[in-house]
Nucleic acid binder design. Structure first.
Lengths: 217, 217
DNA sequence: TAGATTGTTAATCGATTAACAATC
DNA sequence: TAGATTGTTAATCGATTAACAATC
């Protein structure tokens, strides 16, 4: 009896946020960080919405899912909202990432400086090409993918990026899951099958381009 | 009177397809092309849905916006559906693209082999760094961004990719619009302001990563 | 205080799913 | 024919917008 009451109240408190809202939070955070760099200390749902092409009502509704972050009449404190969003998105810490695939794209990502300030850092790079294993990229020695499972497991890394050809992406994903990875950013143009509970996001320029040519003539 | 009747019937025939549907079409096409490579000639909304993690009803509904492509009892012809989707998405032709930004990411994209079979080809590469102008990347001589507007205009290129730092992305976008570009794939982590009628798609790994860490702990 | 802007409710809008007659 | 699967309609579900009392 007590148990079920407890569960019920927890269920209320711990309400599930729709994925479409979660998907907008990183965009809010990015724009607010930009405002911070510009020295802006206060903002409103209106102003934020204009920067993002999102309605003010939607921004207020989204943010209100997580607490009352604003003040009537004055709006939101930019640094406070940045701090809250970082905490909500769990990027108030540093996530170590594995990068699998040391081709051109893997190189570019390994050398990209934009991850650190956003809560991410590359910890290991793997490839299956003997010619690449041992090579230094962005300060890391490329490791043999054959050792991926044990090495990733031993460092309890939860986030991975896949930049291998489509034909080997599923096999790589299987290894990553086996190694305990729970979030995968897949640059290979193929759908990955993963157990439920493992998050996958896709980056495929062709998908974006084809979505635009529909409107051209 | 006749005019308004004509406009009305055109409006009916030329119904606007929701953007969320257009966004799924490239994914359908990619999976069907994969099936074609696997030698599969016939498929069903059910089978396609399983590959994409999309409901069969949704796939049938989406496709039916554009015509009756299937047969009761037997499903869809894979090559026929591929042909139809290529035509709908206008990738039954080749789109020339401008690439602006010859850094690591620009290099990787310029050397990527995956565009050609999907209806795209890089035609020109620009950068503002004197050290990069003149260099050969993927068979192209990097051009000075100062000449972008005239050169792009003269070749009537409509599609562009931006791989410059966030701080110069808006200025580049302005030039591209001035040069007649109508679709921009922006890899810089910043929102672009463009006139209505110009399409923009964004690729930002940090957005995707932060959207996943929300679910981790 | 007067003006501005929040958080929230109710209304609207749009997208997804279920179901099934049509038919291959 | 019997089984399978479409295209489409109606029902459901969910997301966005409008509006406003509360209040800084």
């Amino acid at each position: 009896m007590y148990q079920s009451t407890l569960n019920w109240s927890l269920a209320i408190l711990d309400k599930t946020i729709p994925d479409v809202i979660v998907g907008r939070l990183p965009r809010y955070l990015g724009t607010l960080e930009q405002m911070e760099r510009e020295g802006i200390n206060k903002t409103s749902s209106q102003e934020l919405g204009e920067r993002l092409n999102i309605s003010a009502a939607q921004i207020r509704k989204d943010l209100s899912q997580f607490g009352e972050f604003g003040k009537q009449g004055t709006g939101y404190s930019v640094p406070f909202l940045v701090e809250r969003l970082r905490s909500i998105l769990k990027v108030d810490r540093m996530w170590e990432m594995v990068l699998v695939g040391a081709g051109d794209l893997g190189h570019a990502i390994a050398r990209y400086q934009g991850f650190t300030d956003c809560g991410f850092t590359i910890a290991m790079i793997f490839d299956n090409d003997p010619a690449k294993v041992g090579v230094n990229i962005g300060g890391f020695r490329v490791e043999d993918v054959a050792n991926l499972v044990s090495k990733v497991k031993s460092r309890t890394i939860q986030v991975a990026m896949i930049t291998v050809p489509a034909s080997s992406a599923q096999a790589v994903a299987d290894c990553l899951v086996q190694a305990g990875v729970r979030a995968i950013l897949n640059y290979a143009p193929t759908v990955l099958n993963v157990p439920s509970g493992i998050r996958v996001q896709y980056i495929d320029p062709v998908i974006h381009l084809q979505r635009m040519t529909y409107y051209l003539d």
